[in-house]
Write a protein that binds this DNA or RNA. Structure first.
Lengths: 146, 146
DNA sequence: CACTCTTACCCACTCTTCCCCACAATCACC
DNA sequence: GGTGATTGTGGGGAAGAGTGGGTAAGAGTG
């Protein structure tokens, strides 16, 4: 099965809820996610299945590494486990909403094994038109798609 | 079985749908495709079987490489999983339609393991007459057809 | 215990999307 | 050349999806 794909523009309502695309919901069976911010630009929503791998890598990397341990603590402190309501919406805690500058319209972006939640302005700024990348990256893309 | 071959001119109807050539449909059994834009000139339609390999390479290459991760995010955002309806048509999202400058007539072009969707004018412009390529490319052709 | 604030469930409305039926043209085959 | 199946194209209607808000249950606080 293909992973999460596409870019959807949805509304964040006054209670801080966003719908998940019905297509995404159909792809996960247990309806459990972990929402967190590990990049400054956006939030990331992991299905529980993908989260398991992340968690394993975190436990390994923080072993015997105090600096890494402190960094990961800051990330996990702001992470939440979320579950969509019967209408398929998840609640975004106020802290994370502010951290990612979300309000009003948001993009839900599929990134294969995870879903990203973006402020539309930030996402569009970050978008290189196809063909704008460096030569090195261009070549890598051809390595992927052949 | 030979891969996808040929060039068909079809109509994009007012709802944004295109028929797939019946010949192509017979070549895939599960009727599931991924449609995306990874080259600026056209859209690419991967049968799920071919997509699986692409996705695996994407997951590998983006690990430990933030620049690649950003680039791939923009590509997966412009992708959709599509499934032909009972008439054998797929729906092309408005965003992709505009990105590839599609409207009215389109070409469906077979490229072995994938299908490309082109604006006819762009495709004809991009066509080199046989013999126009560099010497290096000429030689490569002889390596293939020998 | 009473009060407040947050969270979750439910109902209702609107709009899009997708499913299905129908026509027309083409091709294949007797 | 007629006939029937297949294929591309168009459109109507029902189911589903996104959005908003009212109300009840729960957690935290004084």
């Amino acid at each position: 099965m293909a992973g999460f794909l596409g870019q959807y523009e949805y509304q964040l309502d006054q209670k801080g809820r966003v719908s998940l695309p019905a297509d995404y919901r159909r792809r996960v069976d247990d309806n459990r996610f972990v929402l967190l911010q590990w990049e400054p630009t956006h939030l990331t929503l992991f299905p529980m299945e993908a989260w398991a791998g992340v968690q394993t890598r975190m436990l390994e990397l923080r072993r015997n590494d105090p600096a890494m341990s402190r960094l990961l603590r800051q990330i996990t402190a702001r992470a939440v486990e979320v579950e969509p309501d019967k209408q398929g919406r998840i609640l975004i805690p106020a802290r994370l909403k502010e951290a990612a500058d979300l309000d009003g319209a948001v993009y839900l972006v599929g990134a294969l094994d995870r879903i990203e939640i973006w402020d539309p302005a930030r996402f569009d700024d970050a978008a290189p038109a196809p063909g704008d990348g460096s030569q090195e990256l261009e070549n890598a893309v051809y390595e992927i798609f052949g």
